[in-house]
Design a protein around this nucleic acid. Structure first.
Lengths: 142, 142
DNA sequence: CAACAACTATTGACGTCGACAATTATTGCT
DNA sequence: AGCAATAATTGTCGACGTCAATAGTTGTTG
């Protein structure tokens, strides 16, 4: 009978949980959660996105996006702007404060990942990242 | 500004979620969830375990173990037996039905992981597994 | 051009999950 | 004998994922 850790899929599941825990611990003092942080990071690369784009790219349900953007607006890290083309849509953009927050926490975020990958040397980390990226590219079609 | 997928920790988080989703989808028809399956798989390698062992090895809270074992008992896949040494403890063992269930679903479980790792060739899968295993060994101290 | 299908954001409901405190029964310590 | 520590259990709370339903808007097409 195969053991649990013989299964790469299960390992991914377990380490994914652990990674999320570490991220949330680091974000705790800022009052955000991993989901907010992911959304901010995505906005930082996109110059504004429709909520439905955020939903499909981040993999969260549209109804979840609503609350996340609400929270970020309250903190002044993001804004909803009306779309000129389509009055149904709102365009979510990063504010200057949001960008500053990302800049200030960037280093701490890197430390979380470094912590997790501690047992691997730099070349191995690169390899791991490349392999995961390949899976993510086809699996999350991003 | 770094993109989302520039961060290995975040990639792990996302792919871990995806892996869990795939596992749960495969388990749906059996009425179990990933947590039950993990517990069963662990029992299959252990010849009986105290619930507190299950808790520490699987990383679930002791209070979560209670419900999981309840469910598995209802399905006849596991049993609680009194511990001869310590009347506080119960020893959880796999039943014949539980073992049969694992045997019947083993192939489907492998297919889930194969599905996820599709973009990687066999050598790459082996590399990925080894790297993840190294992280898991130090991070989940198992 | 009027009716209808499709889409965007939003709200609400429901079950699951993870983390924690509290309780009961039992054991170990001293 | 008394008290701290432990195993299992129950209950609670917030976060989370999924799904259904709605309002407002756009696109289509008969």
């Amino acid at each position: 009978m195969r053991g649990l850790h013989a299964d790469t899929g299960y390992l991914l599941y377990r380490l994914g949980l652990r990674s999320g825990q570490l991220f949330n611990a680091f974000l705790q003092e800022s009052g955000l959660r991993l989901r907010h942080y992911a959304l901010l990071r995505f906005l930082a690369t996109s110059k504004g996105a429709l909520q439905r784009e955020l939903s499909s790219r981040l993999g969260y349900d549209p109804s979840a996006i609503v609350g996340l953007v609400d929270d970020l607006e309250k903190l002044g890290f993001a804004e909803r702007r009306p779309s000129p083309d389509d009055r149904r849509s709102r365009i979510v953009v990063l504010t200057a404060d949001g960008r500053a927050f990302l800049r200030d926490t960037d280093e701490a975020g890197l430390r979380v990942t470094n912590d997790l990958l501690q047992p691997l040397d730099p070349a191995e980390r690169e390899t791991l990242h490349t392999l995961l990226q390949r899976i993510a590219d086809t699996e999350l079609n991003s």
